[in-house]
Design a protein around this nucleic acid. Structure first.
Lengths: 340, 340
DNA sequence: CTGTTAGCGCTTTCAA
DNA sequence: TTGAAAGCGCTAACAG
């Protein structure tokens, strides 16, 4: 009769069986008291509840996930955790998911599809019940894995064809709208500053170009495109570059408010009057934009609502329901302020 | 002879046993080939590797966590995900933890100890191998649970006695240093704007008061304290309130850069010259602060490094090692700019 | 309403 | 270097 060493256990933590033993029932009854209390008699329920409170029982999610073959978790991949745009989206998604008992596995892809692939594969090991992704530029492997696992997925921020589920806004239209606004204000030599150059920035750029073209204006007059991450400092720098390239520029559409704020600050340093000498427009309507002086004309995007609606749609899909619409366009709104 | 329905499984996903069957070995050998390849013969290893790649095997973390009684995950609780201060800390922690194979369970407590308690209890179910917490104002229940489970924990942002593990900076000293700077510049009617009023803000406030007292100045001349969350808009508003309360104020120490930026913007609107009529100082050195005009005097905090060092210390504790120091003071630095 | 049994997918222990 | 057996903590299925 050989004595085996006991295997490692979750360091003294009480289990369902411990509770069960104390109450004098079987563990499945305790499990029911927790998960489907209506199936357990009032008397046992209260007894069990008191022992649970007494012992300080903490269920083991890993065991539950293994037994039920679902994890009650959702992976959410966003390009950056240090950009309010995406933390707002995340807040909306988390509020919905947490309220429905899901945990979120948050991944920061750093705007890199390769990193997104790494994170996605890593999170797959946790068997998330669904995924929220940003945009549509996933690697082929991700697409293949998604298809193979038939895991519900909802894309955020951009729109696409009816064969994929997404919640976002038309970035092309938004870029077009801002360029049209500048044109309607009488500006004719409108430059563009683009950083990061992720798909959404590119769509805004194309919208801008198309508006200029429709107005019969040279379509790449003063474009500065730089793939490095957006920042206020980069905006400062890019204004210099643009003025060297197109000194006669009278308006500037920045692909986001970070760049635009940098342009505003640098304009003040260079004594360029905004909007008299140079109009400045941004994108996203960050907190600073309404308060900076001159206040910044920009496009407000419904970020929290995008996260909220995307998570809601994902919930439906995880429940096996078919959402009323596969594409939800939450739009954008032009905020005209002092800078134009 | 009754035939039972098969229980739900992870929807067709291959298991170790599937790989093992294909190769003609037992599943433990496949497990070894993955986790401790040096224990498996070269030949089997390559065979197994090719089948794994072929099938696209994805390990099941829940099963592994259950069997090993550890989750390879770390819970990280921060007050806010929409505040760069904490996403910077988070970035530092994640870089370390991910590099060592840990997943991070991110929780946003919204500056509420009660919400922190909820999140902590929820994440306990995942049996994290360690925890990173912000500050020291945890609820008694959290403290009790931590003690009971003897789970390694490292506190971030603040410092404490040698009986707890932490990485941060002395917030009192930092507040004191900024007030001293303003005094050294000759300002005498120095006001304070505080929002959120979390423990770190209060410590800065006490540091400020103590510096004023040491200088023999009335110590609550113009303090505006408001428990609502910090924002640029709140800074705008608070400047108005302060000027009503203390119109002769000549310098303003804002508990963070958000408020300070609001003050700068609003000063410009009100044609208050900074720093001639009113000096303005902030805290944290956000990206905008160096570029805004006038540029903002502030205290730079080593946020990324705090997260990095805290995670490193936690790793040591999770490995059962004793870190060289239980308290790591990463300091701060005064950035004197145009606004003072 | 409660219990028995079996099994989720993996890794530990022990044995060869 | 490989394998058999057992078990981690929980819940689905079936039976009473």
């Amino acid at each position: 009769m050989s004595i085996r060493k006991p295997r490692p256990t979750q360091s003294e933590r009480a289990t369902l069986a411990d509770i069960a033993a104390r109450v004098g029932v079987s563990s499945i009854t305790v499990s029911r008291a927790i998960n489907t209390p209506q199936l357990v008699s009032e008397e046992l329920r209260t007894q069990i509840a008191s022992v649970i409170a007494d012992i300080g029982y903490i269920p083991n999610r890993a065991a539950r996930a293994l037994a039920r073959a679902r994890s009650d978790s959702v992976a959410v991949l966003i390009p950056s955790l240090s950009n309010t745009v995406f933390t707002d989206v995340l807040a909306g998604a988390r509020d919905v998911l947490h309220a429905h008992g899901y945990r979120t596995l948050i991944g920061d892809t750093r705007y890199s599809p390769a990193e997104e692939e790494n994170l996605f594969r890593a999170y797959l090991e946790h068997s998330p019940d669904g995924v929220l992704l940003t945009g549509f530029d996933q690697t082929p492997l991700i697409r293949q894995l998604l298809e193979k696992s038939r895991m519900p997925v909802v894309h955020m921020m951009e729109l696409a064809g009816p064969d994929s589920y997404c919640v976002g806004l038309n970035q092309f239209d938004a870029g077009h709208a801002m360029a049209s606004h500048l044109l309607s204000r009488g500006y004719r030599r409108i430059g563009f500053l683009g950083a990061q150059l992720d798909p959404r920035v590119m769509q805004r750029l194309y919208g801008y170009r198309s508006a200029l073209q429709e107005a019969g204006l040279p379509f790449a007059a003063g474009e500065i495109l730089d793939a490095t991450p957006s920042s206020i400092g980069l905006g400062v720098d890019m204004l210099g570059r643009l003025l060297r390239q197109a000194p006669d520029c009278d308006a500037l559409f920045c692909c986001n408010d970070d760049l635009a704020l940098g342009v505003l600050f640098e304009s003040r340093r260079r004594d360029i009057r905004v909007p008299e000498q140079l109009a400045v427009a941004g994108f996203n309507d960050l907190a600073a934009s309404a308060w900076v002086s001159p206040s910044l004309t920009t496009i407000a995007t419904p970020r929290y609502n995008i996260g909220h609606a995307a998570a809601t749609m994902l919930l439906q899909r995880m429940r096996g329901e078919t959402p009323a619409a596969s594409n939800i366009d939450l739009g954008f709104s032009l905020r005209v302020r002092e800078s134009t």
